[in-house]
Design a protein around this nucleic acid. Structure first.
Lengths: 321, 321
DNA sequence: TTGTAAGCGTTATCAT
DNA sequence: ATGATAACGCTTACAA
């Protein structure tokens, strides 16, 4: 009765359900997992969770969406939050302990132990890598644990091309970029998009890399930029939080937005919305990302081979340019 | 060898460990839980997680701290994120399914099914209720599930008394309050603190309740306040996000802070820090709260009866008053 | 210090 | 449509 209700009389079923409801009976998870050989659980691993959750409020929504959609497919999502430290061993052990059928990684950093665990156990896994994409490193030394996972993300390069073109269209001529995470593929992709858009007008000296995904880093980068190139009249900042910091500095320096300098950003979270004025930015389609990731994983769980997917991201035009 | 290493020769132990490392062996969690009758896992249940995580970036840090501290005691923390909807049934089932030895609730809302599950299964649980404390309702109808859990929180009333006294000390005479969550005990406690501080100067007409814990709600409340009482020269706003919205409206209305109106807030998260000027606020000691909560739960797990605890919270004096 | 056997609460299979 | 019986991979007690 409790399970797929094979061949039970309506009478028996009702009786059992009534009893279960009365006693508050729920099948023991451990026993069930042990016998059934499938926990019907997927691990959602969030690396550097504190940073990621504070940097982008949408992350919480993403995780919730994943949970909801997995639940709809009969899977329990177990969110594994990792701190900054070395605790990715515990997450790796979790995967090895047979507690999950598959994993979704929201991971901006390297986590070799997890990749290794996935490789060795051949656990289906998908990398949901925006905005914290990890670079696709080739074959690293670790014993056959080939780490080219299936990944789901937006097309960072196209999106960057899109937003930054807003600056060009507005007639800006001294356009700079505050880049972020150039050691990761997504960071480089955003830079490529910017470069392509500017074309002949591109000047490498106008590109500054913020040291980290923070408000403070944005302030520092913008100060440096204004210092070195007081004449800038447009900036593409590759992340909303960073942009918020940069905007603060712009205001403090007496620059009006968009009159004196146009600003466009990337991510589409609350930071860009709370700026004065609200920033034109790239909205990451969290719902679709979650949907695609769970869809892909479920397919893999069912044995279907899956491929990486890039989703298009829409530019949110506001009044900052 | 894998477990408490009872009486094993060093030789045997080394051999086993080497083998385990080589094979990447980790004991099957399900089998272990089933046999041992104790999953050594505690559920960290976050109700209305999307709201809570976006409203207060410190929540992520809190959860991480809980995880770390539980891990230090040999417990795995399973974070159960609940959305706004009715899914607290799934969390309740999780508890009933014997997957956890105990629970820590970060819950601002009512979640009757969870309380009921805890009551019926007699699972040790502690309510970590700042800033989303639920009111201590007496005995509600539900069959004997008495919901007076052990709780850990700051002393909201004392803290509110403290911050709002900053306004009085600064010589403000028309002091208002934007309250939040008056349907919850912590919301009422903050109001009581305010009332006490003002003493004879208290004027109930200067208290407005924001409808929700959001930036938008803060804007709306402040607009109404300015409308009804243009002469206010000080405001205590019971939550940082709400305060951020209110401050925006104050600026838009041409009021200078602190020259024209002094502002103090509550929570001590990034919102109050990013305001211009940074807001004087109450810092919630997340680390200590986490520590106290885990300590209490671990004690309960060991059979020691535990009691509720209120922690003092410090006022962060900045330049907004 | 090491080996052996029973049993944890389910699922799956086979017989009824 | 239902009842009986062997796993599942471990822990725990007890025997060696």
């Amino acid at each position: 009765v409790i399970n797929g209700e094979r061949y039970v009389s309506a009478q028996a079923r009702d009786a059992v359900q009534a009893a279960a409801a009365q006693l508050g009976y729920v099948a023991n998870k451990a026993a069930r997992d042990l016998a059934a050989h499938t926990p019907r659980t997927v691990a959602v691993i969030v690396n550097d969770a504190a940073t990621r959750l504070t940097r982008d409020a949408n992350t919480a929504a993403l995780i919730l969406a994943l949970q909801t959609q997995l639940a709809a497919c009969g899977y329990r999502a177990v969110t594994v939050l990792l701190g900054a430290g070395d605790d990715d061993k515990s997450a790796a052990d979790f995967l090895r302990s047979g507690s999950a059928d598959g994993a979704i990684l929201l991971s901006g950093e390297e986590c070799p132990l997890i990749l290794q665990a996935i490789g060795q156990t051949k656990l289906p896994a998908v990398l949901l890598c925006s905005p914290g994409n990890s670079s696709k490193n080739g074959t690293d030394g670790t014993d056959g644990a080939d780490s080219d996972l299936v990944s789901v993300a937006i097309d960072d390069e196209a999106a960057a091309r899109d937003v930054s073109s807003q600056l060009v269209l507005a007639g800006r001529t001294r356009i700079a970029m505050i880049a972020v995470g150039l050691d990761r593929e997504y960071g480089r992709a955003r830079l490529r998009g910017f470069t392509t858009t500017l074309g002949a007008g591109f000047d490498a000296r106008l590109v500054i890399e913020a040291r980290g995904f923070t408000y403070d880093a944005g302030q520092a980068a913008m100060r440096e930029l204004l210092n070195r190139h007081p004449g800038v009249d447009g900036v593409f900042i590759a992340s909303d939080v960073v942009a918020a910091g940069a905007v603060q500095v712009l205001h403090a320096a007496g620059r009006r937005i968009p009159e004196d300098v146009g600003v466009v950003a990337f991510d589409g979270n609350e930071w860009s919305e709370r700026c004065e004025p609200a920033l034109t930015t790239v909205r990451q389609p969290m719902g679709e990302l979650a949907h695609t990731a769970t869809g892909t994983l479920i397919a893999m769980l069912a044995g279907t081979p899956a491929v990486s997917i890039r989703l298009p991201a829409e530019t949110l035009v506001r009044s900052s340019v």
